[in-house]
Design a protein around this nucleic acid. Structure first.
Length: 894
RNA sequence: GCCGAUGUGGCGAAAUGGCAGACGCAACGGACUUAAAAUCCGUUGGGCUUUAAACGGCCCGUGCCGGUUCGAGUCCGGCCAUCGGCACCA
């Protein structure tokens, strides 16, 4: 462009100016207890964004969506007298920096530093009111020292089933403490990704390929660090209840945890050819196979049994003649990658072992098969197959021509074969004629009495695979000596990884750190653990560190934790919000801050905003760590995040997901260059409901920018010389009645809409306000001041500047707008004397009339029936009913 | 297959069971201007109709079908479509 287009208002000067002022004054620093300026009378409010991974690509418009929402609330809450904790940091360990290091040889720390600087500059440009003194970085040794410390807490504790909580390992009385630690070592079949040279967690594998990069993944057994999250399955499930999270997210977590009630049943193996060689002289005690089932009432319907191919008893029971086929099958399944296993899910495969099992209730013999549709990791890795009442078993039985037996009579009289619901037990002597629920109970206790089974609860949730064969992550504070692991002492933290000449994976599964020969050697006898922690580790507890980010004595001081994450302040917060008008949109309860729940709120962070992609993993892992630390007495509440809100994805202008390949990515910097940060913020919020997916539109940004320019021109005129000066129309006079009304209506609407996170409609109301004043000859100062305060959370630079301009002319100005308190409204000023009443005939609007709001039902009815239009419509018909809704409408039914 | 979310003008959307489409975009018309941009004012769901023109009047309309109700975008039942998650979990 040859000549720069004139800006509709000078945002390019205003915005950097105020950002510099805020920075210089540390305007948004939240003091901790004990710090000067700390005001114990103020209730706290902890509002948190999911901190980003600072990628080389920089910020995209999706990031600031949630960040803008939280910034509005943070600014609003401050103006309502809260002490607001609103921090930002960097989740900076991760693969991209490491892969760049592999290519360039540059240490990932350098890449990370550059990317962080870029992200931070971009965020600052948007004018977010973060407390930058609390900035943290997961790759900073001062930070990950405490990540390692938390690992030590897990390592040094166990889950006591009697107390249902974690306790120091010293309270464990058993023989094998290493078998019960919350952090333990196990040889597990893992998802090995040869391309990345690392192991991936199940959830990092999508369709048999790595989530990052899309490389093929195969199963391979390896020694790994695991975290015993399964010990917390029950609590992670039950304690969801007290959280103000979207129901959908809670459901996702419930399904992920996957609790199911059922029974374990022991089956004796009937023919054991190899037993003699395996266990000499102990022929009497035949092995038993334990199965898990949710339908013990279908025990009589079991016609065969299936073990997972990797099941340890397979070797023991397989017969001589079946041995080659079984071995071949096992090798074939082991070779299958995850991808093939899911792809081939359509067709069931399996092989007979030659052995038989005995049904404990009737001594009947059934064949034992192995098949990969039975998973080793779930239940006992073995099932009793009831093809009559299970789809998978039915498919398998039909393919291999195994018998099918009916043992449940469906209630509706449909075909029992393939019926999987509850019905009446048939062909089942012990429970004959009982409904399924009762039959389950009876047969389970029958088995229990005879030591043949027991009721059990199973979870889909698996223990957390916690080690990675990478460089750019937290090293474990662990050494190995004589094949045994040993934790380092707290005093040896942080364990800092050495720089390497070459960050390439070794390809053998050995982590890159193994190359650092000097570092690995811990002492004469001991060597360091060479694995590192996964990226989740740092993000599992960052919200705690924000409470006290510089502490080098503790991961967070007790006092700070208690204040920001604790409940001591709940009362005060409630009182503070009493008297505020709230409306609860029905069926949308997740939108509303439920102040009534504060008293018993289990969570510490008051509002946590981020994307749905973290619905299970991050949120579940963080809850797990939080509970363990809570059990060990380090935290005051059992849950980390009281209220959770997910922002929706922002699509490109073409309604497609933004991506490089589609070329539809919108860069926030470009938007801000052209329209300013305030317009960018307001547009992000004006697009639609926060939680909804919605497409970007540059035209839409323009519209919002136009609104802000109208705000500017409401206050400012251009003089002959083309300079902006405060409008002479603004005078210190009382607003008239109509103006009064719109001021208070706007306070009410904006306040309620911020509380319910309906930012789009709050902005609409402010547009209505501005439209109403645009052509006023005299603009009352007080109305403008109120308006600027309402606008401030949304467009803080513009509001600050105009507030300052008003202050320069009118001596009543008191400090910056950020220090003003939020206005309250007077409901009485919103009430009109007269109101329009709609008159309907059979539910259709036929007339309207203006009546006093005090008109009685009888008066309304009379007025409606007296209307000429209505008279004409109901002429010759009998009025059957008249419904009167005071202040609203009259419906005449004929 | 299972679970969840969503479906309203040309577009983004709004609507405690009570006037569907607030607010914004786009479009069109007007004012200002030598002109354009910017700005300001107005019109704008579809169809039919009265009229010289205007004012008006009527019908239809919130994915589809049904129900509850004086009254349904909203509540209930059944379907369809799109998006997201899970996927042999016994």
């Amino acid at each position: 462009m040859s000549s720069e287009r004139r800006k509709p208002y000078p945002f390019d000067q205003i915005e950097p100016k105020w950002q510099a002022i805020w920075d210089e004054r540390c305007a948004f620093h939240a003091p901790n207890p004990g710090e000067t300026n700390f005001d114990p009378a103020k209730p706290k409010f902890y509002i948190l964004d999911m901190f980003p991974y600072p990628s080389g690509a920089g910020l995209h418009v999706g990031h600031p969506e949630g960040y803008t929402a939280t910034d509005i609330i943070a600014r609003y809450k401050r103006m309502r007298g809260f002490s607001v904790l609103h921090p930002m940091g960097w989740d900076a360990f991760g693969l991209p920096a490491e892969q760049y290091a592999i290519k360039s040889g540059q240490h990932p720390a350098i890449t990370t530093r550059e990317n962080v600087a870029k992200f931070k500059a971009q965020l600052k440009r948007i004018g977010f009111s973060y407390d930058w003194q609390r900035e943290i970085n997961t790759t900073d040794p001062a930070y990950y020292k405490w990540t390692q410390w938390i690992f030590l807490q897990l390592y040094n504790s166990w889950f006591n089933p009697k107390t249902n909580k974690a306790e120091p390992i010293s309270t464990y009385r058993g023989k094998n403490p290493d078998g019960v630690r919350l952090a333990y070592v196990a040889d597990v079949p893992v998802n090995w990704c040869p391309e990345l040279g690392t192991v991936l967690a199940n959830e990092e594998v999508v369709d048999g390929k790595s989530e990052i990069g899309g490389f093929p993944v195969v199963r391979r057994p390896m020694r790994q660090w695991m975290l015993r999250i399964t010990a917390y399955a029950e609590r992670l499930l039950n304690e969801l209840e007290g959280l103000d999270w979207p129901e959908g997210i809670k459901l996702l977590q419930r399904n992920w945890i996957g609790r199911s009630e059922g029974a374990e049943i022991d089956f004796t193996v009937a023919q054991v050819s190899n037993l003699q060689t395996e266990e000499d002289g102990n022929l009497e005690s035949c092995p038993t196979i334990r199965v898990f089932t949710t339908r013990p009432d279908t025990l009589y319907g079991a016609t065969y049994m299936v073990l997972a191919p990797e099941h340890s008893l397979v070797d023991l029971i397989v017969t001589e003649e079946q041995w080659p086929a079984v071995r071949e099958y096992r090798e074939r399944t082991a070779r299958k990658s995850e991808l093939e296993r899911t792809d081939l899910a359509k067709e069931k495969t399996g092989i007979f072992t030659g052995a038989c099992a005995i049904i404990p209730v009737n001594q009947e013999r059934i064949p034992i098969w192995i098949a990969d549709y039975v998973l080793l990791g779930y239940g006992t890795g073995a099932i009793m197959a009831v093809p009559g009442h299970d789809e998978r078993d039915l498919e398998f039985a039909r393919k291999f021509d195994l018998p099918i037996r009916e043992v449940v009579q469906p209630p509706g009289g449909e075909d029992p074969i393939g019926f999987i619901g509850d019905g009446i037990a048939i062909n089942s002597p012990i429970i004959e004629g009982l409904p399924s629920a009762e039959a389950k109970r009876k047969i389970t206790s029958w088995l229990d009495e005879r030591g043949l089974g027991r009721s059990t609860i199973n979870y889909k949730l698996r223990d957390w695979l916690f080690s990675r064969q990478r460089y750019w992550g937290e090293p474990f504070p662990v050494v190995w000596e004589d094949g045994k692991h040993r934790a380092l002492d707290e005093s040896e933290l942080p364990v800092v990884p050495p720089p390497l000449d070459d960050y390439k994976p070794t390809g053998t599964g050995e982590p890159p750190l193994a190359k650092a020969k000097d570092w690995i050697r811990y002492s004469e006898k001991a060597t360091r653990e060479a694995n590192v922690m996964p990226q989740w580790a740092g993000s599992c507890w960052y919200y705690l560190r924000f409470c006290d980010p510089q502490n080098d004595e503790r991961f967070v001081s007790e006092e700070a934790e208690k204040y920001w994450m604790g409940g001591a302040n709940d009362e005060a917060r409630m009182t503070k919000d009493e008297g505020m008008t709230k409306h609860e949109p029905p069926g949308n309860s997740s939108f509303v801050i439920r102040h009534s729940s504060f008293k018993s709120a289990p969570g510490g962070v008051d509002l946590y905003v981020g994307g749905t992609e973290h619905a299970v993993l991050h949120l579940l892992y963080a809850r797990f760590w939080h509970k363990a630390l809570f059990d060990l007495g380090h935290l005051s509440k059992p849950e980390p995040f009281q209220r959770l809100v997910n922002q929706g994805i922002i699509l490109g202008e073409d309604n497609q997901k933004m991506s490089k390949s589609r070329g539809n990515i919108v860069n926030p910097d470009d938007v801000i260059d052209q329209y300013g940060a305030d317009a960018f913020r307001c547009y992000e919020m004006f697009m639609g409901p926060l939680e909804q997916m919605k497409p970007w539109s540059m035209r839409g940004v323009e519209g919002v920018a136009r609104f802000l320019a109208r705000v500017w021109r409401l206050f400012m005129n251009e003089n002959q010389a083309g300079e902006w000066q405060l409008s002479a129309a603004i005078r210190d006079v009382d607003p008239d009645k109509a103006q009064q009304k719109i001021v208070h209506a706007t306070i009410k609407k904006v306040t309620e809409d911020i509380e319910s996170l309906s930012f789009n409609t709050a902005i609409s109301q402010m547009m209505i306000f501005v439209n109403a004043f645009t052509n006023a000859e005299i603009i009352p100062l007080s109305a403008m001041r109120t308006f600027l305060v309402l606008l401030n959370p949304f467009a803080p630079h513009l509001a600050s500047e105009l507030w300052e301009k008003l202050g320069a002319k009118f001596s009543d100005a008191r400090r910056d707008i950020t220090e003003q308190s939020w206005p309250s409204y007077d409901e009485r000023l919103l009430v009109e004397n007269e109101v329009e009443i709609v008159v309907q005939v059979n539910g259709k609007v036929r007339d309207r009339m203006r009546l006093s709001i005090h008109a009685t039902e009888a008066e309304l009815k009379a007025a409606a029936l007296a209307s000429p239009k209505i008279k004409a419509l109901i002429a010759g018909k009998t009025v059957r009913n008249v419904i009167v809704i005071p202040k609203k409408l009259v419906n005449v039914v004929v």
